[in-house]
Design a protein around this nucleic acid. Structure first.
Lengths: 329, 329
DNA sequence: ATGAAAGCGCTAACAT
DNA sequence: ATGTTAGCGCTTTCAT
């Protein structure tokens, strides 16, 4: 491995000069700079980021923790974070908790030591654990609210309300909510928004779950749904909704006829599904991008947004899985 | 930040002892160890991984480069790599090239310096660039073949042959291939397998493209397909296939009747689609897991698999988008 | 504009 | 079993 010193002797300058050429080129004489870069190229020298990190006390890395990489919502979130981080010249560490609440904390803690900042997407760990992490590295939360910690929130209350209004307008006199992970902030938000809207419309509210956000959860949920005589269901997310639809079709209940189904996320899946899924659009990519920008502000000492949570809006996208209630037809 | 030295003085031992307690606990007297860990806890000390990396010359990190994080194929690949890396106690850097061939090399090179090994998934860069990277860090390639570089390959020839056989059995007298990215090894494999199989069946072979693996590419491809009077089409991947189906439905050509469509990947999308997509199953997760294991072997000096490429099999999954040729009915 | 020297936090011979 | 010492490769005062 070729170091700064070898370049220095070869170019007939001191190590400091070589260092400057790579960190603050403008302060070194252009002809010296020229010579140094030329030698560096010839020797194939490139700075050792780790040594650099140790010296300046910053890693140039960001960390991102998500529950499930393959879930389309998080996949798009990751993508946006990656793009934004790169734009800022930062590399991205990524880790998945796989919805395993227990491993989450040690995992994140280990990562926190080697990054300049951390984005936690829908973390399941306790408030106090998050507080401890904040001591180690600047943190931005996505879909989790905690006093004194910067966050970007997608409350989805608007979208859920729109969803229930939509159902009410179609004449449904009740709806069931297929709940997501028990401790998820997002789930709590959705649940209470739906419940509130149902009350306002004098619709009955039933809850099933909790379900992990997987396709299989949805297929598992479908039969109880039929048994309960439901006519309308809102799932925690698109993935679950799609599972429901799949099983419903197998059971020969026509979705968008006998049963109305609404998902959340508007992942690409939703538009492709059959029938196309009515869903609440959630700005995943936007959330990721905003989170990174907040983190960057934090790192730069700009006090981002006055420490207030940034809230992103949601909206109902009506497609073909919702229809008038059978009784109302 | 509390360092090893502060712990040392507080515990009345030398820094080396503290260091040992954290790296090779078994070599230090259990009572000293006890005292040190206790002090460390009290002071909230945790080792600085960056300093450690510099000292031992290894980072404990793996890097993964993918063209598109949100593509389900890569999403599942990433997930498997992440799981496998974590199991080995390694953190994972991830970067996306977004199918931008130009940025790819510098990006990867920067990452190569701070990881112990690299997995390149479907890289688009040139052979010589890859060769240069191999000088910097151990590398395992996925779906790219290069003499002297370890790789895991999914040639998909079997699957494509099965796909064409299937079409032939349904009475189609030709098929069109919606090609993927021009320089992609995978695309070349698929193309030649399809072409070969068509020749064997005396079927006509037509190619359109290249297309980036996106839904929109597929919708764009559909009209020319109709115009060309095609009865059967094999898309580079599921995502494109789904786009085709979507546009075909809009144009009111019934998929699985007038037109047969086959995808590749068997992403979750395929089963959910409408109608369910006939597709060639590609073991994305398996590929990721195997790649990490090969990399680990490389790092350990075990010469993995004799340096031979590991090949993973593919198989046709027949669902509902393929049907007898209209003429043959 | 450049150089000398100290140090970032940890590890690894080598001694004891 | 533990301490001493000398780095790992880079940055950064402080001089010049």
């Amino acid at each position: 491995m070729v170091t700064i010193n070898e370049v220095a002797v070869e170019a007939g300058v001191s190590p400091s000069t070589v260092s400057r050429v790579f960190s603050r080129p403008e302060v070194v004489n252009s002809v010296t700079r020229q010579r140094v870069t030329e030698v560096a190229d010839r020797l194939g020298y490139t700075p050792n980021r780790i040594a650099r990190s140790l010296a300046i006390g910053k890693s140039g890395n960001l960390g991102l923790i998500v529950p499930d990489i393959a879930n389309p919502f998080f996949a798009h979130l990751i993508k946006a974070v990656q793009v934004e981080a790169r734009q800022a010249g930062l590399a991205l560490f990524i880790a998945e908790t796989d919805e395993h609440r227990l491993d989450e904390y040690p995992l994140v803690k280990a990562m926190a030591k080697q990054v300049d900042g951390l984005v936690l997407a829908s973390p399941r760990m306790s408030d106090s654990q998050i507080r401890e992490l904040v001591e180690i590295a600047p943190i931005v939360l996505i879909n989790r609210k905690l006093r004194g910690v910067q966050s970007v929130l997608i409350p989805s209350a608007d979208g859920m309300r729109q969803a229930v209004d939509h159902l009410a307008a179609l004449g449904h006199d009740g709806c069931v909510y297929l709940a997501g992970p028990r401790n998820s902030w997002t789930n709590l938000q959705r649940r209470s928004a739906i419940r509130g809207a149902c009350r306002r419309h004098a619709m009955s509210y039933t809850e099933m779950g909790p379900f992990e956000p997987r396709f299989e959860s949805g297929v598992r949920a479908a039969d109880p749904l039929i048994a309960a005589g439901a006519t309308a269901v809102i799932a925690y997310d698109d993935v679950i909704a799609l599972g429901v639809i799949s099983r419903l079709s197998e059971r020969e209940v026509r979705v968008g006829r006998e049963m109305s189904v609404i998902g959340v996320d508007d992942s690409p899946l939703a538009a492709i599904a059959c029938p196309p899924l009515t869903t609440v659009r959630v700005p995943a990519a936007k959330a990721g991008a905003v989170a990174v920008r907040l983190l960057l502000d934090l790192l730069a000492g700009r006090d981002a947004n006055g420490g207030l949570p940034t809230e992103l809006p949601t909206d109902l996208i009506v497609r073909s899985t919702t229809a008038p209630a059978p009784a109302a037809r």
